[in-house]
Structure formats: structure tokens, C-alpha cells
Design a protein around this nucleic acid. Sequence first.
DNA 1: TATTGTTATACTCTATAACTATA
DNA 2: TATAGTTATAGAGTATAACAATA
Lengths: 170, 170
Amino acid sequence: MTVSKISAPDLTTRERGASPGDAGEGNALELGELSGLLGYALKRAQVRVFDDFSRCVAPLQLTPAQFSVLLLLERNPGCNQTEIAGTLGILRPNLVPMLDGMESRDLCVRTRSTSDRRSHVLMLTDKGRAILTRAKKLISTRHETRFNELLGSQNREALLSMLAKIARDF
Amino acid sequence: MTVSKISAPDLTTRERGASPGDAGEGNALELGELSGLLGYALKRAQVRVFDDFSRCVAPLQLTPAQFSVLLLLERNPGCNQTEIAGTLGILRPNLVPMLDGMESRDLCVRTRSTSDRRSHVLMLTDKGRAILTRAKKLISTRHETRFNELLGSQNREALLSMLAKIARDF
DNA sequence: TATTGTTATACTCTATAACTATA
DNA sequence: TATAGTTATAGAGTATAACAATA
């Protein structure tokens, strides 16, 4: 797999509409070794991408975490909360208020499993499916398109592969 | 720039010492479109890298954020808090307790600027420099070495370039 | 005894407004 | 008036222990 159009990071052009980082950012110190620090680069990129994601789906009022739950429910209808939490790497107690919110918005439903009455069978509602469809469209046409313009779809794939490998094996 | 040794993400081998994600994770639902979601991949990778970073510098009790402040102070001695916050993308109020902690550990000092008595001149102490030196060594020999074994230094550079580009231009 | 969902809780991060002392 | 550092505070996100219902 080949990566082109990737140039070494030049940190000249800062600024961009007064981001969360307080203070104009036009000041900018020298990053020095910070620019080679993997965790720092990952964190800054992740925050940017989450911000853009949230802006793109703003009309639907969906967080990245909620969107990921909807995707899992679509692909794994009838799964339970422990499975969702385990797959997404979040803790079961923290999933509860999240599902409360989504259920109160009629995006999904919890029903007692008949085979194991301890667990909940999770399902998307029609509204949940509709919202998910609209969200996918927004993400695709706004978020991903913009990203591919920045890096190209080939580099996108290389990036995703590396990130998945890091999350899995590092 | 060429990227090799990067294979498409195969999500077979999960598990890895019971990570934060509760529930064994051996259950694992199908990720489906989630595996192509940039923000999800970034977040999972970032969490892994921060975890490993923290483990590697555990004997020094340094968080990634504290380490980045130390690096900035080394490269930009005498800078003020607004510059640090602006460069790192954190808010000035949130930098205050962080510097309190580092100053109480005698890693750095705040002194009033003589030219502008509103701002603080920040400097590393000898102990701060010593800790930073040890931290760099730990990061280099444990953290980065392990990462280069995973992806190779060429892919590492490609990844850093892409992440920096995302943080800058996305 | 072990597991599912839940509650309660605490600790960290992040975000905003407002104060003080300087400029 | 504007800015640097600070305080107070509120909201996310994340972490652990323990409980009721069920297996």
C-alpha cells in the first residue's frame, strides 16, 4: 500500500476560527519534541475529528458515542448492554444513562430477554433507524468527504489500518 | 513516502489483559461500519497509546499532559501560562491546578515577569529537567520502541504526518 | 456462586463567567 | 479598555463498589 501526498508536518499556519484552545493560538510556542510525540498527535487529531463529527450531525443531536451505539444495534439487533459496553470499551454502569437518553428519545428499546430474564434485548426503533440513516448520510457527505479531500481515500485506508492495529496490538 | 506492512484491519484477536472495557471483550459483537469510522478508530488508538504512555512513565508519576508541559518549558523557557495553554489546546483556567501540582513537586517555578507584572515567567527547575530527562528515556526505550516494533519507523512517520495534518487542517 | 442491569459515587477533563492586578 | 492569572462552578467522561433480580 502506498501513501502519497503526505508531507512532513509544517506548523506554520495555525488559527482556524478560535478553537477550544483558549488564547488566539496565534502566539504558538515551538513544539520541539512534542511534534514527534505519538499520543499528543493522536489526541489533537481525535479532538478535531470529534468536533467535526459533532458539527456534521448537529441537526440530529448525536454524539460520536451515541452514533456508535446505533451502528452496533443496527448490525447486532437483540444484543444486550454488556455486549455493547464490552465492544465499545466503555463500562456497563456508564452505558446506562446513555441508553436512558436514547430510549427516552425513542431511538431504541430495552425489553427483557425471555431466555435470560437478567439481560435486556436491545433493538432500534423505526425512528432510531431513520435517525441512523440520516446520520450516516450527513457523516458521509460532510465528514468523510471533507476528510478524503484532506488525505485522499488511499491514505484514509492506511490510516484506519494503522489505528486499528494500534488499538488491537499495542 | 511509502507505507508497507500495513494490512487491512482484521478484528479477530481481541482480548489483552482485561482492558478498561468491562466484560471480558471475548464476546465482541460485529463492528460493521464502525470499523470504518475515523473518530472511533482514533479514539480507541489514542486511549491505548495514553495507557501505554502512563505505564511506561509510571515510576515518574507523569501524565501525558504534564509531560507535554515539561517539553514545552524545556523548549520555550520563560514563556507564560497563556502561551502554554494556547499551544496545547487547553484552557487557561484548567492549566492552573496542573501547574500548582507540578510546582508543588518542584518540577517548575512561576515568577512574576518584571516587564509585565500580570504574567508569570515559567521555568523548569533542576529537578524538572532531571525528571524530564528520565521521562524521555523511558518513553524512548519502552513506549516508542514498542510502537516501532508494531508499525515500523517509516509508518510511524507517515502516521504522525497524517495526524498533524488532521489536527491542523481538518 | 456468578452475571445483568442498575445505583451511587468519585475523580478527572473540559468549559464558562467573573474576579484581581496589572497594562 | 484589555489582558494574565485565578477562582468558582458546572458538565462531560470514566472508574469502582455494591445492590436486586436472575441464572
